[in-house]
């Protein structure tokens, strides 16, 4: 079991270095399946992305319901924004949102960190910058961050996770068993309860299709 960004995970799988992948980058996953690298792909759970930023909110995006409009304001204000810049699922979503805003982000305000979500959030907090984060990583770190959730709830921020069994997996039985387990009622219940105790709300909503 290794934890990497969705882009890296799918590339590992493409080369046969992984048997099963849990990813959250729908477009990249569809390409992966279309190219015939995957044997099956099933939804597992979802949570959402949030735009977080400094309490002072210099770009005045707090409470906006349109994520792309919020990014447009950040760009117009030239407020610092940390991008993952690592082809992860979060980075893919961020680029999608910039596309929706009709903006090609560039300039000294746009920092491409090339690191994981935790490191990008720490950097945003240090620099009092905005960033796009999955809610789970933000919640798990928010005690140590000087950042608030400013924009949430836009359907464009929904974050769907799927499990993919790789075609020709070295351990095909194990991969299929993992996919069957994580979509089973028992595992789905575990997912729905995960984080409830610590954060007062679950970090993921299970949504595997019942078969």
């Amino acid at each position: 079991m290794i934890a990497v960004g969705s882009g890296e995970a799918l590339r590992l799988a493409e080369r046969g270095d992984a048997d099963a992948v849990l990813a959250h980058s729908p477009r990249a996953e569809e390409e992966f399946m279309a190219a015939g690298h995957g044997e099956s792909r099933r939804p597992v759970m979802f949570n959402d992305f949030v735009i977080v930023g400094p309490e002072a909110d210099g770009a005045a995006i707090r409470g906006l319901s349109d994520a792309a409009a919020a990014l447009a304001r950040i760009a117009a204000a030239g407020a610092p924004f940390i991008s993952r810049g690592d082809d992860s699922g979060t980075h893919a979503r961020e680029r999608l949102l910039w596309g929706a805003a009709g903006i090609d982000p560039a300039g000294s305000w746009y920092l491409e960190a090339g690191q994981g979500m935790g490191a990008a959030l720490m950097m945003a907090s240090e620099k009092q910058a905005y960033t796009l984060s999955d809610r789970g990583t933000y919640l798990s770190l928010c005690d140590r961050l000087e950042l608030s959730v400013l924009v949430e709830g836009d359907p464009a921020l929904r974050n769907q996770y799927s499990v993919i069994v790789v075609r020709g997996a070295a351990n095909a039985d194990g991969a299929r068993a993992f996919a069957a387990w994580i979509t089973s009622p028992a595992a789905q219940q575990l997912i729905g309860e995960f984080g409830l105790e610590r954060f007062g709300r679950p970090l993921f909503i299970p949504n595997a299709e019942r078969r």
């Binding site: 960190a113 090339g114 950097m123």
Partner: peptide, 13 residues
């Protein structure tokens, strides 16, 4: 922090 154009060096790249 491996920021492109600022602090990205050979090893972090």
């Amino acid at each position: 922090g491996n920021v492109q154009g600022e602090t990205r060096v050979i090893t972090t790249a």
